[in-house]
Every structure is written in structure tokens, then in C-alpha cells.
Design a protein around this nucleic acid. Structure first.
Lengths: 230, 230
DNA sequence: GCTAGAATGCTAACAAGTTACATTTGATTG
DNA sequence: CAATCAAATGTAACTTGTTAGCATTCTAGC
């Protein structure tokens, strides 16, 4: 599955090298094969995990047992912080996509580390706030914007915003999963964008023949839409 | 408007008194009359604000200009942290409900304060993680659970979980706003709960004649549903 | 070239939410 | 103590998204 999500800042970007090394050295490394369950919704094992290699899918079972994806994690991203700071159980079931490795820092060690390395606490705060921002924007978009516009926003995150035209290699299914809607709805919305000349649909790819026009269209509905500039 | 939301931990709960006093003394106090705009979506003024008195509604305009509420803030709650730590603009327009007072700590001072008072950084991290958790649970519930169940969860947050029966004084509109759905959808869902004998609808009030039964019903769909235990 | 599996397209029936408008409720008042 | 009116709730027509099933198109690999 292709990850479609704006790149976020992670521990790798936010910590000075020596601190990062100390953090990773404090934890213990664990590896998972493709499709293994890393943790279950409701687990209350206290600790902070850093994904060091591979990819993780986060989600939960719906009422009918089907699995609903909530997020995709990439190397450098962390999870489980709130088990340490807030004593809350894990909200999501995580499973590995391909070979993955995580570094697990158990609660007591994590707390000590935060006291001794203010930069660590600082980085975790920044990450939590960024994630918060992302969640709020997502929720907001879901309420305020139509599906075609949300799809356009998502496509634009994987594109050179200066380009005149570009191509995104992804399946409609990938878009659907990230936005939490069905593939059928995604297909319909893409067709509407195609009628407006904003995209051209291919097999496993979507061409954006007029990136600037698409940006303008999105900004007309969401004036504060900004492409991530990290 | 009645606030329907589980009580969360705030700076007031998380900071030792002397630190709290220092934090509040570092900022400057501002007051707003009922209905005044405190900040606009997109503002990028850096600073952390603490709501010290009154109530704030957060939301944004939809495509048609109508206002969509995203959150209700209560005394002790903070906002704007990510303008300081992540350099991001405000996601929501805020406006005061009734007379409100906030304490605004501008970016540079907030950063210094976090360095000098680790407890402050610590508390902000806890708050951010709790909010994260709340947002993830909300998003998750929205995808996985039906509206009647989500409404039941919400009603149960304002009720004595030990009681046999109880009453919630709120308008259907209040429930609708907190869940981000229309009042009509809320009414329909409540009717379904009424047919199941789980609620009795009044004018500006909802009776829960069988609190334990309602809890059981919710837990059947969301086994990890837990009443807030602060 | 063929072909099989993957991805997309289409349809129909249904579910759930929205908007706009109608009705009921209960506090206020002459 | 009716009459009134704004607040709250209810109803109906419509929109959008969902599921399910199947048809079609694409492409990597034989």
C-alpha cells in the first residue's frame, strides 16, 4: 500500500544526533514480520515506541469486524506516548507492513529520559502538537469540504507545488483508505475532477495536468490550504 | 449552550500551584464580551493562551458560510500551543461565550518559561497527548460506531455511572453540535434509542431510565468504552 | 501475443445525513 | 388564566456515501 500523507517532522528531524542516539540506546529493539500484530486496542503496556524501519498500519475493527485504517506510520514516527504521560490505553491496533523494527522505551525509562534530556521532552511536545494540528485539520476538512476537494488536497501533498504538471502513482484504493471513504465514492469524486480537467485517471496513477489550477481550485474553497513546507 | 464533554485535565490540575502562578503571571490578561472574536483561522500570532474565565467556542465557516463548531473550551484549558512549538497558524476561529478572560503568553516568553520550568513543558505535553487521544477516539467512533451509540456515550459522560436512572439537561442541538452532526440526525437517533427503552425524550431534557442498560448497550458495540475516571 | 491478477468502472438497492419547513412546548404577559 | 411567541422538537424530500456484485480495462510476465 502506498502511503499518501504529507511528510511530518519526526524524532529524527527534531533531536540533535547525540540525544537521538541516547534515546534509541535506552530502548530495546524488536522486529516484526509482515502482517504481525504489534499492539492491540486497549493494551495498557506503558512505553514509547519509535518506528525505526518499515511501515505500520494503525486502525481498528468496525462493528462488522472489517478493519478500518486510521493512519500509516513511517520511520522516525513515534507511538504510545500517552501510555506514559497520561496513563491511557492504546487507541489502535497496529500491524506491521513488511519487515519492521521498533525501539521500545518502557515507561519508567522514558520518564527519566525526559527529565534528563529536555530536548527529548521538547521534541515529543512538538510532535504531539503537530499531530494534533493534523487531526484537527482532517476533522475540519471532513466537515467543511466536499470529497473532490479533499482528494485534491491529498493529491497535492505528493506533488511538486511549483510544477506545471505532475503525476501521482497511487491506486484509488489508497486515496480511499487515507480519507476513510469507500473506493466507489473516491472513483466518483475523481471522475468529477476529471470532467473539470483537473486530473487524468490512469491505471495505478493519476496525472495532474494543471497543478496550479488545482491549487487555485482548492484555495477557492479552503483559503488557508497550504502545502506542507518542512 | 450547554457543554457536553467529558471533563479533561488542564493546567490547573497538572501544575503545582507556584508554577501555575508563575505561568499566569508571565502572560497578560485580556477580556472579551459575549460573542467577540478572539482569533481567526489562519492567524499566526505566536503564543500560548490559557482560558481563565468563561467559555470559548471553536469552529470554522463551512463552504456556505455557516459556522461549524469543533470544540468548546472551559477554564484551565489552553490553546495556540502549536503556534509556539511548531510555527503553525491557528486552525480555528474562536469566539467567546459570555464574558471570558484569557491569559496570553507570547511566543518568546512561553519558550523561556518551558526551559526554566520543566513542569510547564511536562504539563503541556500531557495536555497535548490527552487531546490527541480524545481526537483519535472521536475520529474512531465516528467511523466505527453508529450515531445512537455515539450519542449514548456522550450522554453517559454527564451522568453518575453508578446510578440506576438519571436525567441530562440539554437540548438535542447541544448533542448535535458536540458530535458534529445535524440536529435532525440527532433527533432520529434519539428516537431509536427511545424505541429501545434507553431514553425518554423531553423538552430540553433527556431521561435515562436505565443507565446500566445503556452502559451495557454501549459496551456491546465498543468493548473498550470507559467512563472518564479522573 | 496470451493470460491472470490487479485495478478501475458501473449499477442498483439501501443507509444515513442534510436542508427546509411544520408542529409542539412552556415561559411570559396583559 | 388564556394568548402569545420564541425555543425546541418533529417531518419530508433530497443528497451523498455505502455495500455488493459484476463487467471492463490494464499490464507484468510467461
Amino acid at each position: 500500500m502506498r502511503v499518501l500523507r504529507a511528510k511530518t517532522r519526526t524524532l529524527y528531524d527534531l533531536l540533535p544526533q547525540p540525544v537521538l542516539e541516547r534515546v534509541l540506546a535506552t530502548g530495546t529493539s524488536r522486529s516484526f514480520k509482515d502482517g504481525q500484530i504489534i499492539q492491540q486496542r486497549g493494551d495498557d503496556r506503558e512505553g514509547i515506541s519509535v518506528l525505526t524501519d518499515g511501515q505500520i498500519v494503525a486502525g481498528n475493527a468496525g462493528l462488522d469486524g472489517s478493519f478500518l485504517v486510521s493512519a500509516l506510520l513511517r520511520p522516525g514516527e513515534t507511538f504510545g506516548e500517552f501510555t506514559v504521560m497520561a496513563g491511557l490505553p492504546h487507541t489502535h491496533t497496529l500491524w506491521s507492513q513488511g519487515e519492521t523494527t521498533i525501539t521500545f522505551i518502557k515507561g519508567s525509562l522514558a520518564r527519566r529520559l525526559m527529565d534528563e534530556e529536555p530536548a527529548f521532552a521538547h521534541a515529543l511536545l512538538t510532535i504531539a502538537l503537530l499531530r494534533n494540528h493534523e487531526l484537527l485539520e482532517f476533522l475540519d476538512a471532513q466537515r467543511r469540504l466536499t470529497l473532490p476537494i479533499r482528494i485534491a488536497q491529498l493529491l497535492l501533498t505528493s506533488v511538486d507545488s511549483k510544477a506545471r504538471a505532475d503525476t501521482v502513482e497511487c491506486r484509488q484504493e489508497d486515496l480511499a483508505v487515507t480519507l476513510g471513504v469507500s473506493r466507489v465514492a473516491t472513483g466518483k469524486a475523481l471522475k468529477r475532477l476529471e470532467r473539470d480537467g483537473m486530473v487524468e485517471l490512469g491505471y495505478g496513477r493519476i496525472d495532474l495536468p494543471d497543478v496550479q489550477g488545482l491549487i487555485a481550485k482548492v484555495e477557492a474553497d479552503d483559503p488557508l490550504f497550504m502545502l506542507p513546507q518542512i
